[in-house]
Simulated scan of single mutants.
Amino acid sequence: MNVGKILAVVCILIGIVLVGCVSEISTKPDETPESQPVKTQTRGPRGSYENPASIKETVVVRTLSGTFEITVLDCIRGEKAYQVIKASNMFNPDPDQGFEYLLVKVRFKYALGKASQYVSAYCFEAYCDGTGYSPAFVVLPKDMPDFKDVNLIPEGMVEGWIAFIVPQGKDILIAYEYIFEPVCFIKI
Rank of each mutant, 00 (worst) to 15 (best):
M1T: 15
V3R: 11
G4W: 14
A8C: 15
V9C: 11
V10G: 05
I12C: 12
I14Q: 10
V17Q: 11
V22A: 02
E24M: 06
K28M: 03
T32I: 11
S35W: 10
K39N: 14
K39V: 13
Q41L: 15
Q41R: 08
T42H: 01
E50N: 07
E50C: 06
N51C: 13
N51I: 03
N51M: 10
K56W: 06
E57Q: 13
L64T: 05
G66F: 00
T67M: 06
L73Y: 03
D74I: 15
I76V: 15
G78H: 15
N89R: 11
P93M: 09
D96V: 14
F99Q: 11
E100W: 04
E100G: 01
L103K: 02
K105H: 15
K105I: 05
V106M: 01
V106H: 02
F108H: 01
K109C: 03
Y110G: 01
Y110I: 04
A111G: 05
K114Y: 06
Q117A: 15
S120M: 07
A121Y: 00
A126S: 11
G130I: 02
G130Y: 02
T131H: 10
P135E: 02
V139E: 09
L140T: 04
P141W: 10
M144K: 14
D146C: 12
D146M: 09
N151P: 01
N151E: 14
P154T: 08
G156P: 01
M157E: 11
M157V: 07
E159P: 01
F164P: 04
F164L: 14
F164Q: 07
V166H: 00
Q168R: 15
G169K: 13
K170I: 01
I172L: 09
L173Y: 09
E177P: 06
E177I: 12
P182N: 06
F185W: 08
